[in-house]
Amino acid sequence: MKVAILDDYANAALTLADWSTVTARASLHVFNDHLADDEIAEVLAPFDVICTLRERTTISEELIARLLNLKMIVVTDPRVTTIDYAAATAAGILVSEGRAPDSLPYSPAATPEFAWGLLLATVRHLAAESQRLRQGQWQHTLGLTLAGRTLGLVGLGRIGTRMARYAQAFDMRVIAWSRNLTDDAAREAGAVRVDKQDLFAQSDIVSIHYVLGERSRGLVGAREIAAMKPTAYLVNTSRGPVVDEAALVAALRERHIAGAGLDVFDEEPLPRDHPLNGLDNVTLTPHLGFVTEDNMRRFHAGAALAVAAYLDGRPAHILNPEALMHKRPS
């Protein structure tokens, strides 16, 4: 039995979880680099089980059709949209949610804490100034004071609500918009509900915290970005496709907005030749929002338990039980 762990960028999977019950009965291979589309099918062809991490790799219908040995996919989040469940089910491939013990809770603070850090780094130009210092230069830019400014939150769920609390500690005014947000819900979170276009027009900083779906793809488009002040910043730690990337690049290039802090992109990992890499008014980070030691420990521990259960002949937490009707032989 061959098991693959994909996209372990930090090389942490084997140290953060106990895989001994797996390695005693199966061959385990960890991939620290992202597998490109033109190589992934050939590289993964020998594997019986693939462990994915959030949405780092897409397991498409086309890929599933080429992975003839594949019998189970382990996911760390049942809500991921990068697995073709229908294709997996038809091929008899189980999709198992890797659930960690309750003693390893997921930290809901990870992403909002990071988002606030990215916000600060963006408006104070920390990455650029740090790089200049390493090159023997001294201070060059003028930062933005947060106190008294307006933070606009696109989405006021669990993450957005924490962001509103952080903003209050920095003496900021907070406004918010989402499709179903009510005045009372916004007020309870310490924000004022406004119309979508008003949010972009009034905000000094817009921070995106919206779940990606068909209705939210391109939610922040050219019209919304055009409404922003030339001194305003946009921060996105949600999902890349929520924002029209081409419209954002154009606005940054033409200095129609002051800058952006981006942790998520349409294509991940971000290609080296992407136009965002050539702009000096954007702070870029490689999708670090949820990436903390606590969360990675939980994800990998859950994956190890899911694989061990499969090897025991008792696959657990199956998200597509219909696949059992077409189950591939072990």
Results as ranks from 00 to 15, higher is better:
residue 198 D to Y: 15
residue 246 A to R: 05
residue 232 A to K: 00
residue 239 R to S: 13
residue 238 S to D: 04
residue 238 S to C: 09
residue 204 D to V: 02
residue 201 A to S: 05
residue 254 E to K: 06
residue 252 L to R: 00
residue 189 A to N: 10
residue 191 A to L: 13
residue 235 V to P: 15
residue 202 Q to R: 13
residue 183 D to T: 09
residue 246 A to D: 05
residue 218 G to E: 01
residue 187 R to Y: 15
residue 220 V to I: 08
residue 249 V to L: 02
residue 177 W to A: 14
residue 242 V to N: 14
residue 201 A to Q: 12
residue 234 L to H: 14
residue 250 A to F: 02
residue 233 Y to F: 09
residue 252 L to I: 03
residue 253 R to W: 14
residue 204 D to Q: 14
residue 229 K to T: 00
residue 245 E to W: 01
residue 188 E to C: 15
residue 241 P to G: 03
residue 252 L to H: 02
residue 198 D to P: 00
residue 219 L to K: 02
residue 234 L to P: 08
residue 249 V to R: 02
residue 220 V to M: 10
residue 214 E to R: 11
residue 186 A to V: 12
residue 210 Y to Q: 11
residue 217 R to I: 13
residue 213 G to P: 00
residue 220 V to Q: 10
residue 236 N to K: 08
residue 195 D to E: 04
residue 217 R to E: 15
residue 243 V to W: 00
residue 239 R to G: 14
residue 221 G to A: 07
residue 251 A to F: 09
residue 246 A to T: 08
residue 234 L to V: 05
residue 229 K to W: 00
residue 181 L to H: 06
residue 176 A to S: 11
residue 177 W to S: 05
residue 218 G to W: 00
residue 202 Q to D: 11
residue 251 A to T: 03
residue 225 I to L: 13
residue 190 G to D: 13
residue 182 T to L: 13
residue 187 R to W: 14
residue 194 V to M: 09
residue 212 L to R: 04
residue 205 I to H: 01
residue 226 A to N: 06
residue 246 A to L: 08
residue 197 Q to F: 12
residue 249 V to Y: 01
residue 254 E to L: 05
residue 191 A to G: 11
residue 229 K to M: 00
residue 194 V to G: 13
residue 225 I to P: 03
residue 252 L to T: 01
residue 193 R to E: 08
residue 229 K to N: 03
residue 247 A to M: 03
residue 190 G to S: 05
residue 199 L to D: 10
residue 213 G to S: 14
residue 221 G to F: 09
residue 212 L to E: 00
residue 240 G to N: 07
residue 222 A to V: 03
residue 181 L to A: 05
residue 250 A to H: 13
residue 203 S to V: 10
residue 200 F to H: 11
residue 237 T to K: 10
